[in-house]
């Protein structure tokens, strides 16, 4: 628990200022929020960079179910097929030739983490309990992953293999 909280808070501090550059939004209040409620927070997902897709319709504080676009009572089958459907929308390999390759890695990571949690019965049960407790403002520590997703986009300029390719020679 301690390690989780430190990981979250530090990740915000670590990358926070970069988000500001990207979004033009202040990050320090968010990092403070993380500090006071490490496991529950408003998400820092950047809505600005979202473009039209299922994902973009999700509010920043979306639950993992909302990320996958499924009801809370969804069966394992439904989770899997939702994951596959979304993978075909947001996976970098699919969108690599479009305009959105910059953000797709982050979006895919988010979709995959939602799937990884919900497809594991134990982790899903834990998450469901957490979700019931703090339904209003909450999202799971996955908020952190959403935060990372924006970070991934921060580095997305590198998503093509670029000039560094030969660096280890």
């Amino acid at each position: 628990m301690i390690s989780t909280s430190s990981s979250l808070s530090s990740s915000v501090n670590f990358f926070g200022p970069k988000v500001v550059i990207l979004n033009g939004r202040a990050s320090s209040p968010r990092s403070l929020q993380f500090r006071s409620t490490p496991r529950i927070s408003a998400s820092c997902a950047s809505t600005a960079e979202r473009t039209a897709s299922h994902i973009s319709l999700i509010s920043p504080s979306a639950s993992l179910y909302e990320v996958l676009g499924i009801p809370m009572g969804a069966t394992c089958q439904e989770i899997k097929s939702a994951y596959r459907r979304l993978a075909r929308e947001v996976h970098p390999d699919v969108v690599a030739n479009g305009q959105r390759s910059q953000t797709s890695a982050g979006e895919f990571i988010k979709v995959h983490e939602a799937y990884a949690t919900l497809s594991d019965p134990d982790r899903r049960a834990d998450y469901d309990r957490l979700l019931c407790g703090v339904r209003q403002t909450a999202s799971y520590p996955m908020a952190a992953s959403r935060h990372r997703a924006t970070m991934a986009s921060r580095f997305a300029g590198h998503s093509r293999r670029t000039w560094e390719t030969d660096q280890c020679w």
């Binding site: 530090s10 990740s11 670590f14 970098p92 390999d93 890695a105 590198h158 293999r161």
Partner: peptide, 21 residues
């Protein structure tokens, strides 16, 4: 706190980030 983050992007390029808090 030394935060070490590893990132593998869509092109399978590995980047390692490290920062202090």
């Amino acid at each position: 706190e030394i935060n070490v983050c590893m990132d593998i992007d869509a092109s399978n390029v590995l980047r390692v980030f490290a920062g202090v808090v």
